[in-house]
């Protein structure tokens, strides 16, 4: 992307500038609204949460909601909050790393080589993007049961490795951003496939890796893990927080704190990797 100089376009009046800014601000407010609301709600004391008509901004911010939340979670049972936290962090980290490695390895071959069935396979992956989760839920459970993976972390981690979205994005990005000449040059210099992949392909697709990371973290972090897992001590953080939210009106404060709490990790990752993500989505859109 070429660097764009900020400033006024020569053929537009100042009033036009202001107009564009105002329209963008109005719709920008639309887009930022859920985030702003969630942050504010988490810090509202209980009486402010039930003000009618509701206010967007908090007036007397407190951290009561958070202490309530932790109190509730610790009171809930034998399983402590840190245990759920560990489950979520562990599954998210391992699943994301594995997904990035598996998806980019397959994407590299699909993007740069032709082998019998490669196009059919990629077509199957794109079709799979269209199916909703309900179709595969029961058969998925049967497979997990056959493999003996129910009630293990494996049932959450391994399927995440082969999620089709990652392969799709990665392949599109690799096709557009890695010149074949570069790979050939490396091979002429004596690099083997593994070497080419690790020291040439992977550094070049860093934006795509960060994008995959965001999508994968988002999917895994929001997974309550209740489909294949029954033992409470192996379930994930969203499960714990959902039980808090389900507790009725009295727990509204704790529930809004929980919402914010769950939003933080994907949001932080997004802010850190923001510019790269927009770039990847853009270039994977071009090459279709």
């Amino acid at each position: 992307m070429k660097k764009i100089k900020a400033g006024r376009q020569p053929n537009r009046s100042r009033a036009g500038d202001v107009g564009v800014a105002i329209v963008l601000m109005i719709f920008g407010a639309f887009f930022a609204f859920p985030l702003v609301y969630a942050i504010n709600a988490a810090f509202k004391p209980l009486n402010e949460l039930f003000i009618y008509p509701p206010k967007l901004f908090v007036r007397n911010p407190t951290t009561d909601n958070f202490s309530d939340l932790f109190l509730l979670l610790n009171k809930q049972g034998v399983i402590t909050f840190t245990r759920y936290m560990f489950n979520s962090v562990f599954v998210t980290t391992v699943g994301t790393i594995g997904h990035i490695i598996v998806a980019s390895m397959a994407a590299y071959v699909l993007a740069k080589y032709r082998f019998p069935g490669s196009r059919t396979f990629f077509a199957a992956v794109t079709v799979a993007l269209m199916f909703t989760g309900y179709v595969t839920q029961i058969p998925g459970y049967l497979i997990m049961a056959k493999l003996g993976w129910t009630n293990t972390y494996l049932s959450l981690i391994i399927p995440a490795f082969a999620s089709p979205m990652g392969l799709f994005l990665m392949k599109q990005f690799m096709e557009s951003s890695i010149p074949d000449v570069l790979i050939e040059a490396a091979k002429i210099d004596g690099a083997k496939e593994g070497k080419v992949f690790i020291s040439i392909v992977m550094p070049l697709v860093k934006p795509a890796i960060l994008t995959l990371m965001i999508f994968s973290i988002q999917a895994l972090w929001n997974n309550a893990g209740t489909t294949y897992i029954y033992r409470d001590e192996l379930k994930m953080l969203p499960f714990a927080l959902q039980t808090v939210g389900a507790g009725g009106v009295a727990r509204t404060g704790a529930a809004s704190a929980a919402t914010l709490f769950l939003m933080i990790p994907p949001l932080t990752c997004f802010i850190l990797a923001q510019s790269n993500i927009v770039e990847t989505m853009a270039s994977s859109g071009i090459k279709e």
Binding site: G28, A41, I214, Q242, T259
Partner: peptide, 28 residues
Amino acid sequence: RTIVRAVYFLPVILASGVFVGLENNNAL
């Protein structure tokens, strides 16, 4: 411009999963 673009991408990050779930279940 980059910041504004990021703001417009925010719903994609927030939309899925728990946030929507809580939005629907939340009594408030």
